[in-house]
Design a protein around this nucleic acid. Structure first.
Length: 861
RNA sequence: CCGGGCGUGGCGGAAUUGGUAGACGCAAGGGACUUAAAAUCCCUCGGGCUUUUUGCCCAUGCCGGUUCAAGUCCGGCCGCCCGGACCA
């Protein structure tokens, strides 16, 4: 029996699409647009199965929307700057650009072999000067709007390699290459003022109703809005204040100390005159910052000589500590400690024997219970109470609820001039300077006379130098003998370029907008952006839930404020797909084995010499565990359609997909089954008359005809909702029904022919090459990818009769066939007449009968 | 510790949002075809009882509740996964 020649067929159809420019997108006012985008890949070397899944999902949507008459934009590009290229450069002594462009060429060919309906004419790579030139313009626009600014910030410094390290290059506090302990150094760095939009970015999450709830929650948490008060504590004997942020100003009367971060400016000042404090600060820095370390770290404090005055009780003086659990980055870097109602504070207070004064009590306690509660909390407990309640021991706040007391405390603070209501965000400005070569140069010149000078726009792009020492590491821009030396654009005197490049997240924050007008001599042309944006459907991994997706949201707002675009939210709908996972294998020596090295018989053994194999967990495909499957090999052996079909079968797209050999084999068998059904020389599908024979609506062919219409309806419904696994199941059902229709009557032939045509249209988004092949075999006109989506005829969606479940006291007892339009009385009558029902009823009479038309009859006895 | 998600046959998963639990596929077993194998086709396939049926019981992590009816809703446990984490 012949087999479908996927390899030959797929190459042929890819060429046809390419020559016809079938997927080239042009603005067509009046036609509904649809912009589908998958997160663009980093050109790491080769396409992996995760990419195949991601791009298959996107392609199904793109092709479906095309068939639905939308003007679809479906572009592809490369997130081409980044550290791996520099690492490869060092290892292999090749230029990062050469390595990157090689990888792009390989991966482009791999993507093309998947048969994706992409508009390749819009392809871009972020490392192309055309692209980063426009990004440099964006930087300068942000600078003019005050959205980019410069300040001191900490970096990881490798003292041996004499270079700045990215966070991922720091392993257990040491440089990844030198192994030397990393130092923290301060450098002048560029920041984007994302915090200008904190509130807006948070509020607009509400409108992202087609984003996964999980992503929305993660973004909300990341922005981290808290409301409370900023409170000023006057330092006793000085005209100085310590500012503190608190969400619980209602607990102010329970304050028993003030704590500063070890990095707080006041701490730094005190430490310069107090060696013991300097030592304490030093020790805190070495305590480790890993989550586990933080979890177990004891609360440590150092008591300073200072005291502060309580804002409401000036006669009350509170000691000032430096405490290791106070973070400099959050709030003001200082807190007031209220041990009774904060777990960290009570641990600290018990250790240093500070007073614990309860000021909130659970409501609805009687006097005795409350006294016991207060006494326990004050004297014994190591568990703070942070629940709701009413204020006690709190002067003018007594008797108020927590919410009321917060408001009253803020009002009083404002009256006294000792503080004010305040909204605090966790979100901090985005540091974008990277001390690396392979990125977009920051278009700035530093002049001894004029200071920070933007490079004039007509001198852009600031190009990366080609002649670098690829093997040296560190920042090649800094090392380069001549590149950084320029004349100041303002005074003409000797000056230096900024040798930092931009974080690669900047590159990916606006590429989707660039696709609208990829060749424009401005970041985006307004007409193109107005037509295509926002992205209607964005598809990618959950790992970008916060940074990339939040930065992109920031970028659109920032670009809008620069007058470059009219858009706030870039992605109307977001889908996050699951990972591709695979079993892991270990040989007798404990080393990981590749799937191709393992055979499954009764037990798993190695292919080579039959050694026993230990099966490991099912895990994300990774080179280190060797549980990877080569995409080229799969496409070579089975074809892209088989791989695509398998990707869509079984697992819902948002969940992890277990890649199995049996699964891909099954998909391949199904591809051939369809091919034989429609396309064999003796296949009855090719025949059948043009006129609809009335008999086709009756009997067996009628049943199959209705099945076909239900398949159209079901597949459509499921594709819309990303339930690809169910679409696949419905296609299976349809094929099963079509295969079973074997008669030679005109009606049978007509239904088979109609079924074949419909089948081909329904599989087109998922298996486009096979679809074209069959479309041609059926004598269809033009290309299948240009054909409209089939419509289900409502008249054929239902059978004349429906099967009702007959329950007695909720237990299934029988099923009955009733006319579809049977009323309640008839359904009840037929149910009661059923033999099994009669037997169970015996001589009882039903107390109640519940009829749900079309579904169920429940007889209650 | 906080937040979110999930838990259904040997496996991946369906179940029209409260109405016949297990669609569809994979794996497995049996059969047909074949000298043989592959491919293909047909049958069986949650567990138990049974007078072997067109019968009955149990079954969606566990315990309880609401309802004529619960995989689905509510309360409480258990387990796994993801994210965040000394955020005042």
């Amino acid at each position: 029996m012949d087999r479908y020649n996927a390899k030959e067929s797929e190459a042929r159809w890819q060429k046809v699409w390419d020559e016809a420019q079938a997927f080239k997108a042009t603005e067509a006012p009046g036609k509904p647009k649809y912009y589908v985008l998958e997160m663009f890949p980093y050109p790491s070397g080769r396409i992996h199965m995760g990419h195949v899944r991601n791009y298959t999902i996107g392609d199904v949507i793109a092709r479906y929307k095309r068939a639905r008459g939308h003007n679809v934009l479906h572009p592809m590009g490369w997130d081409a700057f980044g550290l791996p290229a520099e690492n490869a450069a060092m290892e292999r002594k090749v230029h990062p650009g050469v390595w990157t462009l090689d990888n792009i060429a390989t991966m482009r060919a791999q993507l093309k072999s998947m048969g994706l309906s992409l508009d390749w004419s819009r392809e871009l790579a972020t490392c192309q000067p055309d692209y980063y030139k426009e990004q440099q313009k964006l930087f300068l626009a942000f600078l003019r709007q005050g959205l980019a600014y410069r300040r001191n910030s900490w970096v990881n410094w490798d003292p041996v390699d004499q270079t700045v390290l990215a966070n991922e290059q720091v392993i257990d506090g040491c440089g990844w290459r030198s192994g030397a302990p990393v130092e923290r150094r301060q450098l002048e760095q560029w920041f984007f003022r994302i915090t200008r939009y904190s509130d807006e970015l948070l509020a607009a999450i509400e409108g992202l109703d087609r984003w996964p709830e999980k992503v929305r929650i993660m973004q909300r948490n990341w922005i981290g809005r808290s409301t409370g008060a900023e409170i000023r504590f006057r330092i006793s004997g000085r005209e100085e204040w310590v500012e503190v942020f608190s969400t619980r100003p209602d607990t102010l009367f329970g304050a028993s100390f003030l704590a500063l971060s070890p990095q707080h400016p006041l701490t730094v000042a005190l430490a310069s005159e107090d060696p013991a404090l300097a030592k304490f600060v030093e020790d805190c820095a070495h305590l480790g910052t890993s989550e586990a370390a933080i979890e177990q770290a004891p609360k440590l404090g150092y008591k300073t000589e200072l005291e502060v005055l309580h804002p409401f009780l000036p006669e009350l003086r509170l000691p000032v500590y430096v405490a290791n659990y106070v973070l400099v980055e959050y709030g003001t870097g200082a807190i007031f400690g209220c041990p009774a109602h904060d777990q960290r504070d009570i641990e600290f207070a018990r250790k240093y024997e500070l007073p614990v004064l309860p000021v909130i009590a659970p409501a609805e306690q009687d006097a005795a219970t409350r006294a016991a509660y207060a006494k326990d909390l004050a004297e014994v407990s190591v568990q703070a109470y942070d629940g709701p309640g009413i204020a006690i021991n709190s002067h003018f706040l007594d008797g108020l609820s927590v919410e009321e007391a917060i408001a009253a405390a803020i009002t009083r603070l404002e009256q006294l001039g000792e503080g004010k209501g305040h909204v605090q965000y966790r979100l901090r400005d985005w540091g974008i300077s990277r001390q690396r070569y392979w990125g977009t140069p920051i278009p700035i010149v530093h002049c001894p006379g004029c200071g920070v000078v933007p490079v004039p726009e007509d001198e852009l792009p600031v190009l990366l130098p080609e002649d670098i020492d690829a093997g040296r590491g560190g920042n090649a821009l800094e090392h380069h003998p001549t590149w950084k030396h320029v004349d100041c654009p303002e005074c003409g005197g000797p000056a230096q370029r900024d040798t930092d490049t931009m974080d690669t997240f900047v590159d990916s924050s606006w590429y989707f907008a660039r696709f609208c007008s990829p060749a424009a001599d401005r970041p985006v042309t307004p007409e193109a952006a107005r037509y295509w944006l926002p992205v209607d459907q964005y598809i990618g991994g959950i790992e970008h839930a916060v940074l990339h997706l939040l930065y992109s949201r920031f970028f659109m707002r920032a670009m809008q404020d620069c007058g470059l675009i009219e858009l706030e939210e870039p992605f109307a709908s977001l889908f996050t797909q699951g990972m591709v996972v695979h079993e892991t294998y270990r040989g007798p020596d404990g080393n990981w084995l590749m799937p191709t090295e393992v055979m499954r018989e009764s037990d798993a053994v190695t292919t080579l010499d039959g050694q026993p194999v230990t099966l490991g967990r099912v895990e994300k495909m990774s080179k280190s565990k060797k549980n990877v499957v080569d995409t080229d090999l799969i496409i070579e052996v089975y074809g892209a359609d088989t791989a695509r079909w398998f990707m869509l079968s079984d697992s819902p797209p948002e969940r992890d997909l277990v890649w199995t050999e049996a699964g891909i084999e099954g998909a391949w068998r199904f591809v051939n089954r369809i091919w034989r059904l429609v396309c064999q020389p003796d296949a009855p599908m090719a025949q059948g008359g043009a006129a609809f024979p009335a008999a086709a609506a009756e009997g067996e062919p009628g049943k199959v005809l209705r099945q076909i219409h239900r398949a159209i309806d079901g597949v459509t419904h499921d594709l819309k909702r990303f339930h690809f696994n169910r679409s696949v199941a419905r296609v299976h059902e349809m094929v099963n029904a079509l295969s079973a229709l074997k008669g030679e009557s005109a009606a049978d032939q007509w239904v088979r022919r109609f079924g074949a045509e419909t089948l081909v249209r329904l599989i087109a988004p998922m298996m486009p090459h096979l679809g074209e092949e069959l479309w041609q075999a059926l004598g269809g006109e033009g290309l299948l990818c240009d054909q409209p989506w089939p419509e289900a005829d409502p008249a054929y969606l239902h059978d004349d009769t429906v099967t009702l479940a007959v329950q007695m006291n909720g237990k299934l007892r029988a099923t009955i066939e009733v006319p579809r339009d049977a009323d309640r009385a008839l359904a009840e009558q037929l149910a009661l007449a059923d033999a099994t029902v009669q037997r169970h009823l015996a001589d009882q009479s039903p107390r109640k009968v519940i009829v749900v038309p079309g579904r169920v009859v429940n007889i209650v006895v």
